[in-house]
Design a protein around this nucleic acid. Sequence first.
RNA 1: GCCGUAGUGGCGGAAUGGCAGACGCGAUGGAUUCAAAAUCCAUUGUCCCCAAAGGACGUGUGGGUUCGAGUCCCACCUUCGGCACCA
Length: 1084
Amino acid sequence: MPRYDFQRIEPKWQKFWDENRTFVTLNTPPTGAQGKLYVLDMFPYPSGSGLHVGHPEGYTATDIVVRYNRMRGKHVLHPMGWDAFGLPAEEHAVKTGTHPAVTTKQNIDTFRRPLKMLGFSYDWSRELSTTDPEYYRWTQWIFLQLYDTWYDPEYEWTGPDGKKRLGKGRPISELPIPEELASVRREPDGQSSVDSHKHQRADAPRSPEIRKYQDQHRLAYLSEAPVNWCPGLGTVIANEEVINGKSERGDHPVIRMPLKQWMLRITAYADRLANELEDLGWPDSIKALQRNWIGRSVGAEVDFPLASVRREPDGSPERPTSLNQGAHAPRSPVLRVYTTRPDTLFGVTYMVLAPEHPLVDSITTPEQRAAVDEYRRKASLKSDLDRTDLAKDKSGVFTGGYAINPVNGERVPVWIADYVLISYGTGAIMAVPAHDERDWEFAKQNGIKIVPVVQPTKDWLANNISKDVDCSNDMLGQIADEVIQEAGGIDHVDPIWFLGDDKTRTREVLVARLTSARQGNVESISEHFGRMSDLFDRPYCEVGTAINSGKYNGLPTAEFKAQITADLTAAGLGKEAVNYRLRDWLFSRQRYWGEPFPIWHELDEAGNPTGLMRADSAEELPVLHPHMEDFKPTGTPEPMLAKAPDAWLYKTAADGVKLKRETNSMPQWAGSCWYYLRFCDNQNSERFIDPALEKYWLPVDLYVGGAEHAVLHLLYSRFWHKVLFDRGHVTGPEPFGKLVNQGMILGEAELTAYQKGSGKGQGTSDKAEEADSSLALNPQPSTLNDFVTIKDTIESPDGEGRIHKDTKEPLTLVKLTAEQVEKSGSNLVLKGTDIVVESRSYKMSKSRGNVINPDDVVKEYGADSLRLYEMFMGPLEQVKPWSMSGVEGVSRFLGRTWRMFVDERADEVALHPAIQDITPTDDQLRTLHKTIKAVTEDIEKLSFNTAISRMMEFCNEFGTLEPRPRAVLAPFVQLLSPFAPHIAEELWELLGHRDSLSYAPWPTWDEQHLVESEIEIPIQINGKLRAKIMVPAGADAVTLQTLAAAHANIAPQLAGKQIVKVVAVPGRMVNFVVKEQEPDSDSR
RNA sequence: GCCGUAGUGGCGGAAUGGCAGACGCGAUGGAUUCAAAAUCCAUUGUCCCCAAAGGACGUGUGGGUUCGAGUCCCACCUUCGGCACCA
């Protein structure tokens, strides 16, 4: 009985593909190739727990595109590899003593097997792993490129892509050396460092001063700065890896502490990373996410001269330095701030320095010293989490110092407060409490005066009336008018009212007005809006017309900004400035299982570091890991590799200088930053990629992966690529052309219950959550038994069962079935109770127990069914819940397809006798060609779910038809093959073909066959459907109208009515616009 | 708060401004079977109507544009995701 036996078919074809090297892609295009296509999946981290259903989602999508294009004659590149450095393998090593390399190899094997089992047409000869020394050798080489590069923001050039650019990463040897350093080069002992310009080696004998100067400008540099130290992980991590003060991986607390770490100067590329997003074929949402992350803002830097500064012995106080700030150097001691609102300069009533700001010491007066030191000490202990938690609390201390407001000469007190961040802008702000929420809160809390400098507009008044005032939009406008009238004109509306002071008369008028508007209770409203400011959502307005601003009074905000920026620049008091939320990328980790740095530190006679560094040459790469037995973290910020044997750690250079290896390692992102390049040329031992192959294959034409990489991997990769581009190693500025993010697959929908009437509000999640816990604490014994909602459970420490979060009792989670609930209005209710039941899907997670294992699905339904189901669930980009019965649905479709070709009642597998070489009818051909067209276009649009539904329709039409014309069925197999390649190959073979279907030409459709002789046309009266008629396909508007008017249902309805207009669109519809004779209450 | 995404049957979802709900799941009825599974056929947005014929309503809410709106415009509500003391 030859049923659809995927367990026989699938391994058979996987073996066939393997043995015939069906999917190996040569680097030379085959003759007659229709161009190249590089389709890439985000390569996985091979975790020990194996494949997850999310993986095959994107992989199937790309596989369909690849198989389709292969059949269309494209020269396709479709590789797969492993992002295999990272913590889990190392943590496993700590537990078991197994070397991470061993674990990694095992994990890769457990990942490769299911990928092969799913029939993806990867070219496995291009497989790579970031942990392979032959791979990370080039990762280290690229690091050396970064190390050898400085960014010249002034450099104008034309790239190989023909576009003009401003700003370029250039070799460090081309960095101009300042005069004062250059003079040092001629050393007294005659050891000149006038180098040949051509071959500069990193360890060339130059003066230490120059070398340190260069080191400060490299794209890869060492910096002592507060970083995110995560004791739980035993390493520092990047800003991007910190979520709400906890580590992204493991959810461990993160504390900030100053450490010397490697940084990559990604901020130098911030502008280009933001601007060059524009032309990318990426989803707007991802572009927005990156733009947001880069966070470009335009404003001005303004210098406030200091009124009282304790002079240092050398005569000048230290000036703040910032990487972000430009070169204009003030002559006298100043406090430089960055602001996006230079138009509010006249409203500055205090200034704030970040506690870590270098000027704090010199500005603090002796009287304030103790308080300032105490505040700084406390602030330094705060983790980012604490700072976030206490966001509302605007604490701060007065330093005793004053600065002079450059626009009006006023003395402004200088405070320190931790709501100002050292890492953004200049680490200091001018505070304008009248027009900034944070400054306003701070001023209120510390009793600082508030000076409004922006006059509210009528629009502001209308738009900011409190949401508690329940009235129409018209009413809001009227209230605004009322305020203005009461004040005697918009210019007399005093902004101070909104800053908290009462304005009794106006308030009374408004309250009366509101009362009449909503027929409310006068007293309650009066009480509710006790003060004028309560009537408005915000106590300040941001944009409007200038007041209290001297000669600028009357200027609208935008003009004021432009004007005063120009004036400040002219006076040398400031300049326009751009700032980024993006920070430099913290690039070192303290772990073993990452790429070692190809860097040495020079030691002096006593063995102490001199602060000078040397890089390994390209020939010395790769820098391999030292052999180690003990993988326990040091527990301190001291890197794991510091425990390496001396042979690895130390060496003496040719010039006799003692060297010690850099013991940090690179973060996991390093390997994934450039793997798409290596796939083009993964065997090359001379270069990281052959230039000709780079030019041929790049950029990646389609890149598919999860949206969780929107700001990490995708930003880092673009950065590295741009550096390689600037240094002439790649030919394009961007690595990825079209990008698609597959949506996450959620677990199967679960029913959760909560008590009716509990909580407040309407059906909000808050309510459900509140109710959840009360249910768990007071289970209804007779009705719910041990039913407990998921919220109340946590994973037990051994990771096996689940326990109650409060009682720590083990729990059995009872899933409700559809039979246990009944409908009640729009809700579901647990039968016989007042428990409301909600259906919801959650992220798959081990602790929730809703993880679907692809292996199990393949065992039960086959790889083709899994592939087909994941594509049929819905649009690729969308988040969608898993449904096992959905898998059964597509599995049934494959069964029907099988039976369309194979007679299951026969004794062996053979073509169904109903399939005959007969001439198809026009209708049959139309169905076939419609299907070819639809499937083809849907694949092009990556609309796989609709493509599959088209094939289902085809199958529904021909599945049981007898006889079935072979000429119609054969192309269907080709259409199906990208989606369900195994069954397609099998059927293709049954149809008598000996070669793999993979290169059979994709079917084309003929418009001629799509033409229908008669079509159905809807007839509307006043836009409402009243009838349908069959008309000849080519019928013109007049014919349509005549036929429609004569229709048995339409004629009576038109009788005696005035036809105002007839809209007849040939091939589409007819609409009669009639006027009702009696103005009857025709309920619209 | 800011940026982004999405709201359509019992469910997943489909619809170049032109017949809302393709396709699938689920459900109901039937055929087949000793019976079941599997399979096949039919019905399936809600409501009015004994039923049919027919009709009314229907794409988050309120307006608007249009002969015609799920689709376009304005305002709002809600969901999900990201960022969040970024000056």
